[in-house]
């Protein structure tokens, strides 16, 4: 089978896999962003219990491999509770919990990186703590966070490939299936790699445009 035949034969399957990868990424990242914001707020809370919960969450996510987290959710928890969830659902839970932990640290870092003089200036004008946070601190923190957030998005999109081990037919899994049939490991992994690369590359271009749009440099 020529390369062109291989390509044309496997492309529909690979595109299905890519679509699933993108769905898994998008759903997980949306949930992860919300989770990350909530967790970072907990991390900066005055309440020591909320801070402790955030610290434990981040420590567990950082301290264990995503692969183990995925197995634990798909096999461990479901076995323990004697329930069944779809591989997609398990993937979304694992990826969003994982990315949420890292994003919460990124958001916390961004907020704490805003010059304390900004808060002082706002409060000295009479702005309330709430107005200061939302009008002065958050808009600057978002700008600081953008590169690290985009970086985390890239990582999570690629991490969806790890979810292939629980049987979800995303891009990497589809690649494996095609190789199992055709034995064309070299070509198929190049094609799969290019497909990931293009997605990530488009995302970073988009991010650079946004970053330039909101830049504060004169």
């Amino acid at each position: 089978m020529s390369f062109v035949d291989l390509l044309s034969e496997s492309m529909p399957l690979l595109l299905d896999g890519l679509a699933l990868t993108l769905q898994l990424s998008a759903v997980s990242l949306i949930i992860a962003m919300v989770l990350g914001i909530l967790a970072s707020l907990m991390g900066m809370s005055k309440n020591p219990v909320l801070r402790a919960i955030n610290r434990a969450y981040v420590a567990i996510i950082r301290g264990t491999p995503l692969l183990v987290q995925g197995f634990f959710i798909y096999f461990g928890i479901t076995g323990m509770l004697n329930i069944r969830i779809s591989a997609f659902m398990a993937g979304v839970i694992a990826l969003s919990l994982n990315a949420g932990g890292y994003l919460s640290e990124i958001f916390r870092g961004g907020i704490q990186a805003v010059d304390p003089g900004q808060r002082e200036a706002a409060r000295s004008l009479g702005l309330s703590a709430h107005q200061t946070t939302w009008r002065i601190i958050i808009p600057q923190a978002i700008r600081i966070c953008i590169p690290s957030v985009v970086n985390q998005w890239c990582i999570t999109i690629k991490d969806t490939s790890i979810i292939s081990v629980i049987g979800l037919a995303e891009l990497t899994k589809v690649g494996q299936q095609i190789i199992a049939r055709t034995y064309r490991s070299f070509e198929v992994w190049i094609i799969v790699g290019i497909m990931y690369f293009v997605i990530i590359y488009l995302l970073t271009i988009l991010a650079r445009v946004v970053e330039r749009k909101v830049s504060l440099d004169a």
């Binding site: 010059d115 003089g117 900004q118 002082e120 200036a121 000295s124 004008l125 009479g126 002065i136 600057q140």
Partner: peptide, 14 residues
């Protein structure tokens, strides 16, 4: 604080 304006060494413009 609305009645007490403050000017900082580092300006602290937003």
């Amino acid at each position: 604080r609305e009645d007490v304006g403050m000017v900082f060494q580092q300006f602290n413009l937003f």
